[in-house]
């Protein structure tokens, strides 16, 4: 699961561009900052964590599904 810190995100959308599984897409509506933040597409993410590393703004965290259950 991909968690986004909207306070840190600046809307460069590099995560959407470089995701090898197309698991992210721009939100339809603008947020308070005036950007389209990335939102997760359901059942696409395989947890490769590339978006976490490619994000220049430290905004994305990939949480593994089994961690959530604990």
């Amino acid at each position: 699961m991909i968690e986004l810190n909207e306070e840190y995100c600046k809307g460069c959308n590099l995560c959407i561009e470089y995701c090898p599984r197309d698991a992210l897409e721009p939100a339809e509506e603008l947020n308070e900052k005036g950007i389209h933040p990335p939102v997760e597409v359901e059942d696409r993410c395989n947890g490769c964590r590339l978006c976490e590393l490619i994000c220049p703004d430290f905004a994305i965290t990939v949480v593994e599904e089994d961690e959530e259950e604990d």
Partner: peptide, 20 residues
């Protein structure tokens, strides 16, 4: 945070890679 770098600037990545 959030840092001052412009949208799409790579300096944030340099910091991220250094931390790793």
């Amino acid at each position: 945070m959030p840092h001052i770098f412009c949208t799409g600037c790579g300096i944030g990545n340099v910091l991220d890679y250094t931390l790793w």
